[in-house]
Simulated scan of single mutants.
Amino acid sequence: MAFEHITEAINEMKEQGTFRKLVPLESAQGNEVTIDGKSLVQLSSNNYLGLANHPRLKQAAIEAVEQYGAGTGSVRTIAGTFEMHEAFERELAEFKHTEASLVFQSGFATNLGVLSALLGPEDVVISDALNHASIIDGIRLTKAARRIYKHVDLEDLEKALKETQDYRTRLVVTDGVFSMDGNIAPLPAIVELAEKYDAAVMVDDAHASGVLGKNGRGTVNHFGLDGRVALQVGTLSKAIGVLGGYVACSQDVRDYLIHKGRPFLFSTSHPPAVVAANREAIRVMKEEEELFDKLWANTEFFKNGLRDLGFDIGHATTPITPVMLGEETLAHTFSDKLKDHGVFAQSIAFPTVERGKARIRTIVTAEHTRDDLERALEAFKTVAEELNVTLHA
């Protein structure tokens, strides 16, 4: 039959204990979620600020549906640009301290559209080895040359910059916060090197938008680098709480992407509810600064708790905290047993991360209570004892 190799691959994953089913939630996204009728502490959501179920965002979405309908009926370049789309992009550009911005259907689509449109055979893209899959796929779609530098290795980056002097445009691309390890890119040094060798910088702030910088403006603002980074890419579906991706850039880049960015050109525009909720999210981030205080207090408490128990959490300095376990089957089993003890924390294994570097990736949010986090720490301790995981306390 057709696709026999697919069936074989699925069976192999099942035999190795690496096959995973989707886990449907039966409740709104929050500090606790309902799965199979059971309430669990949620440690796997990107809902950093709790905006996904924020009353102001929900009300904005409802009002937009009532006034403008459920959908837009067209792509942006034909009849699908409502005034609210452009108003939101103006607000987003102001928030990011850039000249302009353009919204795509997702963060993944943004990286595909930006990289494939802006770079040609005369150019080279220089990318961190642990950049997100969407950056990797965006690079694959370009006709540009490509260089991969060792993860956050500034010497290797400088070597790549020296060896690519003959290209028209050299674009250094890095995640602002690396999604699997939770570490922050050394952006000031990257920008200085790029300026030294007349290169441009693109930062993917998927896990920094709404987390780092004043009111969640991102890594560039966090390091005081406003105006020195050519392209800021991010999502509207993590800390922002809704859906979409964006690039904050110059007006010329925005205009060019409207004409050449294929995901933008050939996808129906965001429905009114999404646009209105995104706009309200930016306003909430400006006005409810206590959300950031709570997020970082929870982050510090949970990281310290895991360290005190003896877990290896790598070099994470953001709300993303990987609990390193190594073997794929152990990580999956650990995650399953956490559910039995009231915690939903998903395992991450190959091919998302390298073989032998499987982990439980945890993310705390501003919504978590101290009780939530204490219960989660107790669950991690109990499961480690049940599975005879060696700790280093």
Rank of each mutant, 00 (worst) to 15 (best):
N221A: 13
D371I: 08
V364C: 11
L295W: 04
V124G: 04
P322R: 11
A239V: 08
Q232C: 04
I135E: 02
H368P: 11
R217C: 10
E192C: 00
L295D: 02
M13T: 11
F350A: 14
T7V: 15
A273P: 09
A144D: 07
A277M: 06
Q232A: 07
V323C: 09
G342W: 07
D312Y: 13
G113S: 11
E63I: 05
R262G: 00
H332M: 05
R307E: 15
F3A: 13
R168V: 04
T365V: 11
A133L: 14
L225C: 08
Q105E: 14
T352W: 13
G241S: 03
I282A: 00
T352I: 15
E386P: 01
D156H: 15
K196G: 01
F266A: 12
I320W: 01
E289C: 08
K357D: 08
D128N: 14
G244A: 04
K14R: 15
L236D: 01
A358S: 15
D204N: 15
F82I: 04
D123Y: 06
V152E: 07
V23D: 01
S39D: 10
E385Y: 01
A393W: 10
T321R: 06
T390S: 15
L171W: 00
A331R: 08
A273G: 09
S45P: 07
K96E: 06
L171V: 05
E378M: 12
G342Y: 05
A276L: 10
V41P: 08
N183G: 09
S127Y: 12
W296L: 02
